[in-house]
Computed example of a mutant assay.
Amino acid sequence: MMTSTTSDIAGFVVVRNLGVVDALTVNAVGAAGNVLGGLQALTGGKLSAYYELDENTRKEAFNKMCEVASGKGANAVVGVRIQTQGFAQGVLEVLCYGTAVLVQPL
């Protein structure tokens, strides 16, 4: 699946717009992750528990969006956007959305 944050993909032309696709994912670190994150915050440096939460949740939402687009018959998603929101310590929501399209080489 080709993806782009712009409205087109270089070397390709959009031949069919298949509509907006999105995916929402909410994940949390466990209690141990919150304790580890708190200790790392006190000592400085990379907060590995929260970094992994952010990275994994973002990838999960992106991959789900691509699956939805593929299910509509798309071979690309343009105008991709990702929004994140934290609800509480160690809880993260990620929304990934874009426009599913069918493209072909120029």
Rank of each mutant, 00 (worst) to 15 (best):
V94E: 00
E67T: 09
V68D: 00
L92K: 12
R16K: 15
S7Q: 13
G86S: 14
L39I: 12
V13I: 11
S7N: 15
V80Q: 06
Q83N: 12
Q40I: 08
V35D: 14
L95W: 07
G73N: 07
V29S: 02
S48Y: 11
V80Y: 07
N75A: 07
D8V: 13
T5N: 13
T5D: 12
T99W: 00
T43N: 10
F62Q: 10
G30K: 05
A88G: 11
R81C: 06
D22W: 01
A74K: 04
G33D: 06
F62L: 14
Q40V: 06
V21H: 00
Y50V: 02
G30I: 05
G90C: 05
A69M: 03
P105M: 07
Q40P: 07
K46Y: 11
V101Q: 01
R16P: 03
G73I: 03
Q83L: 12
E52S: 12
A76G: 04
F62S: 07
G11K: 05
V78M: 05
L92A: 05
V68I: 09
L53T: 05
M1L: 13
K72A: 09
V91S: 02
A100H: 04
G38M: 06
Y51N: 14
Q40G: 07
M2F: 15
G11A: 05
L18Q: 03
